[in-house]
Write a protein that binds this DNA or RNA. Structure first.
Length: 287
DNA sequence: ATTCCATGATCAG
DNA sequence: TGATCCTGGAATC
């Protein structure tokens, strides 16, 4: 379930269980054996997320002779990207025998974490980490980021706003669900060219992503339906299917819009499924 | 038992 | 645009 909120949540989950102590690192699957060996018995100093990229920063364990055991800067990082299929499973100790798909297991006396199916799991340097930050756009979940840089690119682009929202160089962390839902919440036609989006609409979209994705971190799932449109408020049945949260359009093709009743539409856009309401999102967003 | 599909992204052409 | 990588659960045969 990896959009940006998931990654920020995982950064916190890793930190809570492992930061400040030495960890045992292994790669039961073998594909990250070398990297795991290099951080084995080191201290997880801190964790960080930028968009869908997760960074685990390691430093050497303090020597007993050190008087002040101040946490140093990590001298190497594990860079994780879950891709579409990657998953992390946290559990207690002792850790059960790993299955053969576990790329990376971290474990200490009280917890373990198993990483499976990531598209990236690599040991990188500080410079390589910086290069990743440099090619990512602002992230609604990073407190120091704002949407200005994204706006500069969006407002000059003929590309559709739906495609721009998934471009991690422009804005980091938005995935297929938040894309569909935030465009719905602001009544923006997904096919609107970026240059035709109003500054006002963009500012509202950015602020909404900051809010929605923070909620996503808190609840560990994507909920985008405003209180007045929740099933209880409207007397409609709750979403039965899969992944949890209440949504307006994502994976609701051919169902009726909660607000206007029109049939939700779906289309292929850059190899991803796009969902929108033709009634609520008809050619608007230019403000 | 097999195929399909997914909240991602890169690379070749 | 299409092929490819990564995994597992649901749908389909």
């Amino acid at each position: 379930m990896p959009e940006g909120h998931t990654i920020h949540r995982l950064a916190a989950d890793y930190a809570e269980r492992f930061v400040g102590r030495t960890v045992r690192a292994t790669s039961p699957q073998g594909r990250f054996a070398g990297g795991a060996a290099l951080v084995d018995n080191q201290v997880l100093e801190r964790t960080e997320a930028h968009g869908k990229h997760l960074f685990l920063g390691f430093g050497p364990p303090p020597r007993t002779s050190d008087k002040l055991q101040s946490r140093g800067d990590p001298h190497r990082w594990i860079h994780v990207h879950l891709g579409l299929f990657g998953k992390l499973g946290f559990g207690g100790a002792p850790a059960p025998p790993p299955t053969d798909t576990v790329r990376l297991r971290l474990a200490n006396a009280t917890a373990h974490a198993d990483l499976r199916g990531p598209t990236t799991c690599a040991l990188i340097t500080d410079a390589e980490k910086q290069a990743i930050h440099d090619r990512l756009g602002p992230d609604p979940l990073r407190p120091d980021d704002d949407g200005t840089r994204a706006w500069q690119r969006i407002s000059r682009s003929r590309t559709t706003v739906a495609a721009l929202l998934l471009d991690q160089k422009i804005i980091a962390g938005v995935g297929n669900v938040y894309r569909a839902e935030v465009l719905f919440r602001h009544g923006v036609d997904p096919y609107l060219p970026g240059r035709d989006l109003s500054r006002t609409a963009w500012d509202a979209i950015w602020a909404d992503l900051v809010f929605l994705m923070a909620e996503g971190v808190r609840h560990n799932r994507i909920d985008t339906v405003r209180p007045e449109h929740l099933p209880e408020a409207m007397g409609r049945p709750p979403r039965v299917d899969d992944h949890g949260g209440e949504v307006y359009v994502y994976r609701r093709a051919n169902q009726h819009c909660h607000i206007c009743g029109a049939e939700i539409r779906t289309a292929d856009l850059a190899a991803r499924n796009l969902f929108w309401c033709p009634g609520c999102q008809a050619g608007r967003g230019g403000g």
